[in-house]
Design a protein around this nucleic acid. Structure first.
Length: 271
DNA sequence: ATGGCGATCTGCGATCGA
């Protein structure tokens, strides 16, 4: 079974590109980030026509995540636990987290797998409330991951983590030193998530350094290969046992009207 | 040394992303 994760950077602005990729790559499950629309404006019929069940957690203008699956989806969760006080505080007063960045479901494949679709906060600029919001969101994710891992079942946490874990994950690491994606706290948070017992599918597949997943639209970053690896699929032991392979679809960055991220596809023996 | 692109709608300029 193939599970894809892709930050599409607006599903409506990029619908033909997204559909063309889906038809060619044929993932069984797709995790989309940055759909940038409310649920009512998600083009669900276009995906249903390709045989997908569709669940969304949308938001006006920004963020938004979706799960597509050729198998039935159940046990849907929208948002991480702790949303009541997880937002950006205003004048020191706690606020709810109103940003749509997480959707999870049980994929009812022959061997079922729970899939979490993650759009982790960017956190820039460091020194503003956005950075502690990123770290607090990460803490909530890690707490939830710990709970899910206790089930000892196949689990994949896929998405745009907005973290450059190591210097080898950037073409020009020196250019990211002041950036929220490369702060020691951000890097420690994704390490802590892995240390709960999750395996990075990229490591299982021995992907070489330079397997980037994002290139900025600006400054000819794509043409100069100034990329970073920030999109990941993290697998529970029960999912990692069934790992068959991983592909990073670099060619998608050269499609018409490309997203600034490319899809990552993980193949698991669940069917 | 800086900006450079692309999407949204607050909509033809401001805000956000990474």
């Amino acid at each position: 079974m193939r599970i894809a994760t892709w930050n599409v950077n607006s599903v409506n602005a990029r619908l033909p590109t997204v559909l063309a990729w889906l038809e060619a790559a044929q993932p069984d499950v797709a995790c989309f980030q940055e759909i940038k629309c409310i649920d009512e404006n998600f083009p669900r019929e276009a995906f249903e026509s390709l045989g997908y069940n569709v669940e969304t957690h949308g938001q006006k203008s920004y963020n938004g995540v979706a799960l597509l699956s050729k198998y039935p989806l159940s046990d849907i969760r929208r948002g991480l636990p702790g949303a009541e006080t997880g937002g950006i505080a205003v004048d020191g007063v706690e606020a709810p987290d109103d940003q749509a960045r997480y959707i999870e479901a049980l994929v009812e494949s022959p061997t079922p797998i729970r899939v979490g679709c993650i759009y982790l906060p960017n956190g820039n600029p460091v020194g503003t409330a956005k950075f502690p919001y990123k770290l607090a969101w990460f803490d909530r994710l890690n707490a939830h991951a710990r709970d899910l891992l206790a089930h000892e079942e196949p689990l994949a946490l896929c998405g745009d983590y907005n973290v450059i874990p190591t210097p080898q994950d950037a073409d020009k690491p020196e250019g990211w030193v002041g950036d929220a994606l490369f702060q020691p706290e951000s890097r420690a948070a994704i390490r802590a998530l892995k240390y709960l017992g999750l395996s990075d599918a990229s490591e299982l597949g021995n992907q070489p350094p330079g397997t980037y997943t994002f290139w900025d639209y600006q400054a000819g970053a794509w043409q100069r290969n100034h990329g970073i690896r920030i999109d990941f699929a993290l697998l529970s032991p029960q999912a990692a046992d069934r790992f068959r392979g991983i592909e990073t679809h670099r060619d998608a960055r050269d499609m018409d009207k490309p997203s600034d991220h490319v899809p990552v596809v993980v193949d698991l023996a669940l069917d």
